[in-house]
Design a protein around this nucleic acid. Structure first.
Length: 366
DNA sequence: ACCCAGGCGTCAG
DNA sequence: CTGACGCCTGGG
């Protein structure tokens, strides 16, 4: 695989492409903030004036309201392996405490172009979203205004791949964050492509073609290998990842998006039509469909309504009455419009940090 | 030490 | 509409 991204259209960072990433051009461009360590390692930054409002990586990554497990937090940065133009790049991110700039360290086994990776980072953390305008929107509603102080720099944590988002979201249903994250990690290790970098071994998420033919449980795995293994040795199946009954959903959904439903076309549809289409996938109900639309496709009008959002909205807007989930979803969409997704994010984080979430927990029977 | 109820969102009945 | 689903958590 050669370095990609050459020939892209004009952009303020065209120089980065021109510098490219080969031994002839090794060097440091201090003025532009691009530091080429060697052929396969770059340090750079996105200055705060190049995105709209602050970014708080910690609360964004750990908001709990996402479609994918958190990036690994190590020392003072967050890291994740991204696939950009089919090329694996290890990304380490932090923010400058003084300036708020996004600091990044990129590492790969091959030459790679800087600009597409930076664009990917901008996309994942929704850096083009105008937080200032959103704050204005929040201030208009006295119920929402208090969320601002609790959510400084909180942004959507978008998925870097729609298929991965779909499978992760199916896995997240009726699940805990810990169990869910562990399952996804296990799946990556078992069936993802392994990528060995100077700083360790990393795994990509398996493709749909891989997932659709995985054995669902140990019995199926044993049958598939012709009974050559003992049942205890059969750990390369979906159930062994701790996904429980969701294994069948994940497998069947992978089959459907490989053979019948185009994830690309889904992205072109109207919100309502895409929502309805997603419901046809096994393991995808209203909550998961909205997660996929919001985090996978960046559809801000989606209002994923889980039990917590239901409780929060009921408390804040319906005097604590037990309103049905689909009514809450409808309310969120109508009331918050294009900001529904962000509002859901802010309300949840606010409720968590302000102690409201604890108050809304149903009373244990004595 | 051990057990078992409770909780999460979707599906099937 | 209700219960089942798998697994982890927390309280007894």
């Amino acid at each position: 695989m050669t370095s990609l991204g050459h020939g892209s259209s004009t952009c303020s960072l065209e120089w980065a492409q021109e510098i490219g990433f080969n031994s002839f051009n090794k060097g440091i461009d201090y003025k532009k903030g691009l530091f080429i360590i060697d052929n396969m390692k770059i340090k750079s930054s996105i200055p705060p004036e190049e995105f709209n409002g602050p970014l708080n990586l910690d609360i964004t990554i750990n908001s709990g309201q996402t479609s994918q497990p958190a990036w690994i937090n190590e020392e003072n940065y967050f890291k994740e392996l991204l696939i950009v133009n089919n090329q694996p790049v290890l990304v380490r991110l932090s923010t400058d405490e003084i300036t708020g700039a996004v600091l990044m360290e990129l590492e790969s086994n091959n030459e790679f172009s800087f600009k597409p990776v930076m664009e990917e980072i901008r996309y994942i953390f929704d850096l083009d979203f105008n937080l200032t305008l959103f704050h204005e929107f929040l201030k208009e509603d006295p119920v929402l205004a208090p969320t601002i102080d609790f959510c400084n720099g909180l942004r959507l944590f978008k998925a870097h791949n729609v298929f991965e988002c779909l499978i992760s979201s199916i896995c997240s249903a009726n699940n805990s964050i810990i169990r869910w994250s562990r399952s996804i990690g296990t799946m990556r290790q078992k069936w993802g492509d392994s990528c060995i970098l100077p700083s360790g071994r990393f795994y990509t998420f398996p493709t749909s073609e891989t997932i659709l033919q995985l054995p669902e449980h140990e019995v199926e795995e044993m049958e598939m290998c012709g009974g050559e293994k003992n049942i205890e040795e059969c750990i390369h199946n979906l159930k062994a990842c701790g996904v429980g009954y969701r294994g069948k959903y994940m497998k069947d959904a992978a089959k459907m998006v490989t053979e019948r439903i185009s994830l690309h076309e889904l992205g072109q549809m109207s919100y309502e039509k895409a929502f309805e289409s997603l419901l046809d996938l096994p393991g995808v109900g209203p909550k998961v469909a909205d997660c996929i639309l919001l985090y996978g496709y960046g559809r801000g009008e989606a209002f994923p309504t889980d039990i917590w959002i239901k409780r929060i909205i009921s408390h804040l807007y319906f005097e604590g009455k037990d309103v049905k989930v689909d009514k809450i979803r409808e309310f969120g969409q109508e009331h918050f419009g294009e900001y529904a997704g962000y509002t859901q994010l802010y309300l949840f984080h606010y409720a968590r940090k302000s102690g409201l979430l604890d108050k809304l927990k149903p009373l244990k029977k004595q």
